[in-house]
C-alpha cells in the first residue's frame, strides 16, 4: 500500500519536474525570424533528389518499428547468404583455374621448392607469334621485359657500399 503511494508521489513529482521543460524558451525574437529563414531558403535552395527523401523516411520508419527492422535485417542477411553461395557455386571452377593459384605459377613459387630458387622466367608469359607481332607494332608497351638475368634487388648495387662518414661535431663560431 505504502509502496504504491510512494510510486504515485514519485510520479507526481516527476510530472512537476517535467513542467520545467515548458519554461525553456529560445532567444527573444526567434519565432519572428524563423518563418523568414524558411521562406528565404525555399526561394534560394534547389530541392534535393527524391531518392534521398525516400531513404530518409525508410530508415526513420525502421527506428519506430522493430518488427520491420528485424524483417529487413533478416532479408538482407538471407540475400547476402544466397548471393554468396551462388557466387561460390558458379565461380568455383573458375577460381580453381586462376593461373596465380596453380602450382608453378609466378605467385605460387612453391612448385620450385626442389631447386630452391624462384623461377623468375615464370613471371613472364610465354610469347606467342600473335603477341610478338602485336607488341612489335606498338611504340610503347606495358608488357614485362623478358630477360634471363634475375632482377636486381634494392641493396645489391654498389650504392650500398658507398659509406660516407658524418661528423656531428659542432663547429666553433
Amino acid at each position: 500500500m505504502n509502496h504504491s503511494s510512494d510510486n504515485q508521489d514519485s510520479e507526481q513529482k516527476l510530472k512537476s519536474l517535467l513542467a520545467l521543460k515548458k519554461h525553456e524558451q529560445p532567444p527573444p525574437g526567434y519565432f519572428d525570424q524563423l518563418p523568414n529563414a524558411v521562406i528565404h531558403r525555399l526561394r534560394t535552395e534547389q530541392p534535393p533528389r527524391v531518392n534521398s527523401i525516400w531513404f530518409e523516411n525508410f530508415f526513420a520508419k525502421l527506428a519506430f518499428e522493430p518488427k520491420l527492422a528485424y524483417g529487413v535485417g533478416l532479408m538482407v542477411g538471407a540475400s547476402a547468404l544466397i548471393t554468396g553461395s551462388y557466387f561460390v557455386q558458379s565461380k568455383g571452377p573458375e577460381l580453381a583455374n586462376i593461373p596465380s593459384l596453380r602450382p608453378g605459377s609466378p605467385l605460387n613459387p612453391s612448385a620450385d621448392e626442389d631447386s630452391g630458387q624462384l623461377n623468375y622466367m615464370s613471371l613472364v608469359p610465354e610469347p606467342t607469334l600473335a603477341s610478338t607481332l602485336s607488341h612489335s607494332s606498338k611504340l610503347f608497351t606495358n608488357a614485362p621485359v623478358r630477360s634471363l638475368a634475375p632482377p636486381s634487388f634494392l641493396f645489391d648495387g654498389p650504392a650500398l657500399q658507398q659509406v660516407h662518414a658524418v661528423s656531428y661535431r659542432t663547429q666553433p663560431y
Partner: peptide, 18 residues
C-alpha cells in the same frame, strides 16, 4: 545547448514546491 528558463519558471507552483 539549453535554452534559458523564462521568468515564469520561478513562480510555477509545481517547481516551487519541488
Amino acid at each position: 545547448s539549453l535554452n534559458d528558463l523564462d521568468f515564469n519558471a520561478e513562480h510555477d507552483p509545481d517547481l516551487v514546491s519541488l
